[in-house]
Simulated scan of single mutants.
Amino acid sequence: MDPFSALAAVAGGVVAVVAAPVALGAAGFTSAGIVAGSIGAKMMSAAAIANGGGVAAGSVVAGLQSAGAAGLSGAASAAAATVGGAVASVASAIF
């Protein structure tokens, strides 16, 4: 891997880890709960309707709220960095 691709992969990983909490907050998944009228609230409503009134533990909505409330765990940060790095690496190969 050339130095530019390596740098792009690292930068992509860093951006993914930093951007994930910002994206969660923007979608309405915050430490205070899901923000009324947000995308998160709409997702929660749809999940509750589909599950007979409650949001299932381990569901996507529950996971996103957990990450929004507590921040990313070490494993989630590593996964976000890996995905971000891979995307940046592919992008650097294209451009």
Rank of each mutant, 00 (worst) to 15 (best):
M1D: 08
S38E: 03
S45M: 14
A8Y: 00
V90C: 09
I94Y: 14
V17E: 00
I34A: 00
G63Y: 09
A91R: 09
A23D: 04
V55R: 14
L7W: 03
A91F: 12
G25C: 02
S77L: 14
S92W: 07
G68F: 14
S5W: 00
P21W: 04
M1T: 09
L7Y: 07
A26I: 07
F29K: 09
M43S: 03
G85M: 08
V14P: 00
A78T: 13
V18M: 10
A67N: 15
A48G: 05
N51F: 01
A41R: 06
A67I: 01
S59W: 15
G25T: 05
V18N: 04
P21F: 10
V90D: 02
A69M: 13
A19F: 13
G63A: 10
M44N: 06
I94H: 09
G71E: 07
V61L: 12
A32E: 08
G40L: 00
S66G: 12
A26H: 05
A76T: 13
V10M: 05
V10H: 01
A46D: 08
A26F: 07
M43I: 03
A56R: 14
G58W: 02
N51S: 15
I39M: 11
A75E: 13
A48V: 06
G53I: 12
A32V: 04
A93W: 14
V18W: 01
S31A: 09
V60E: 10
V14N: 02
V55P: 10
M44K: 12
A62V: 09
A9L: 01
A19W: 11
G68S: 07
A88W: 02
I49K: 15
A27K: 06
G12K: 04
S5P: 02
V60I: 15
T30W: 10
D2H: 04
V83N: 05
A46C: 00
G63F: 12
D2P: 03
A78Y: 05
